[in-house]
Measured scan of single mutants.
Amino acid sequence: HYVEVNGKKIQATSAEEAEKIAKKFAKIYNATVLDLGNYYKVT
Rank of each mutant, 00 (worst) to 15 (best):
H1D: 03
H1N: 07
H1P: 10
H1M: 11
Y2M: 05
Y2C: 09
Y2R: 01
Y2I: 07
Y2Q: 02
Y2K: 04
Y2V: 07
V3Q: 00
V3P: 01
V3K: 02
V3S: 00
V3Y: 03
V3E: 00
E4S: 05
E4W: 09
E4C: 14
E4I: 14
E4Q: 07
E4T: 05
E4R: 03
V5R: 00
V5K: 01
V5W: 12
V5P: 00
V5H: 04
V5Y: 10
N6I: 05
N6L: 14
N6G: 10
N6A: 09
N6D: 08
N6Y: 13
N6W: 15
N6F: 15
G7H: 05
G7P: 00
G7K: 04
G7C: 11
G7L: 03
G7Y: 04
G7R: 03
G7Q: 03
K8F: 14
K8P: 00
K8I: 14
K8D: 07
K9E: 05
K9W: 13
K9T: 10
K9D: 02
K9P: 05
I10W: 09
I10E: 01
I10C: 13
I10Q: 01
I10T: 01
I10V: 08
I10Y: 12
Q11G: 10
Q11M: 15
Q11I: 12
Q11P: 14
Q11L: 14
Q11W: 15
A12G: 03
A12M: 07
A12C: 12
A12E: 00
A12P: 02
T13H: 12
T13L: 12
S14Q: 02
S14N: 10
S14A: 02
S14H: 03
S14K: 02
S14G: 05
S14T: 11
S14C: 08
S14M: 03
A15Q: 14
A15T: 07
A15L: 14
A15V: 09
E16G: 09
E16A: 14
E16H: 10
E16D: 10
E17I: 08
E17T: 06
E17P: 00
E17M: 11
E17A: 10
A18E: 00
A18P: 00
E19R: 14
E19Q: 11
E19D: 06
E19G: 08
E19A: 13
E19I: 12
E19N: 08
E19T: 06
E19F: 15
K20A: 13
K20I: 10
K20D: 09
K20C: 12
K20T: 10
K20Q: 12
I21W: 08
I21H: 01
I21A: 01
I21F: 05
I21N: 01
I21S: 01
I21T: 04
I21G: 00
A22V: 04
A22C: 04
A22W: 03
A22P: 00
A22N: 00
A22H: 01
A22Y: 03
A22D: 01
A22M: 04
A22R: 00
K23I: 12
K23P: 00
K23A: 10
K23R: 13
K23S: 09
K23F: 11
K23L: 13
K23E: 11
K23H: 13
K24Q: 13
K24R: 13
K24L: 15
K24P: 00
K24S: 11
K24H: 15
K24G: 09
K24W: 15
K24T: 11
K24A: 14
K24N: 11
F25H: 04
F25D: 02
F25A: 04
F25Q: 04
F25Y: 13
F25V: 07
F25E: 03
F25P: 02
A26V: 07
A26Y: 04
A26F: 05
A26E: 08
A26R: 04
A26S: 06
A26L: 06
A26T: 03
A26P: 00
A26H: 05
K27S: 13
K27E: 15
K27A: 15
K27I: 13
K27L: 15
K27F: 13
I28S: 06
I28R: 11
I28P: 04
I28T: 07
I28G: 04
I28C: 14
Y29E: 06
Y29M: 12
Y29S: 05
Y29F: 12
Y29P: 07
Y29A: 05
N30I: 04
N30W: 06
N30K: 10
N30T: 04
N30M: 07
A31F: 08
A31N: 03
A31P: 00
A31I: 05
A31V: 09
A31Q: 06
A31L: 11
A31R: 02
T32C: 12
T32A: 09
T32Q: 13
T32L: 11
T32W: 09
T32Y: 10
V33F: 07
V33A: 04
V33D: 00
V33Q: 01
V33I: 12
L34M: 10
L34T: 09
L34H: 08
L34V: 13
L34Y: 08
L34P: 02
D35H: 15
D35Y: 15
D35A: 12
D35R: 14
D35N: 14
L36S: 03
L36F: 15
L36E: 07
L36T: 04
L36M: 15
G37H: 05
G37A: 04
G37R: 01
G37Y: 06
N38R: 08
N38D: 12
N38P: 07
N38G: 15
N38F: 11
N38V: 09
N38Y: 13
Y39F: 08
Y39A: 06
Y39G: 10
Y39R: 03
Y39W: 13
Y40T: 03
Y40R: 00
Y40L: 10
Y40S: 01
Y40D: 03
Y40G: 03
K41Q: 11
K41M: 11
K41P: 04
K41R: 09
K41F: 09
V42W: 03
V42A: 02
V42N: 02
V42M: 02
T43H: 10
T43V: 15
T43E: 12
T43N: 09
T43K: 07
T43G: 08
T43W: 11
T43F: 12
T43Y: 12
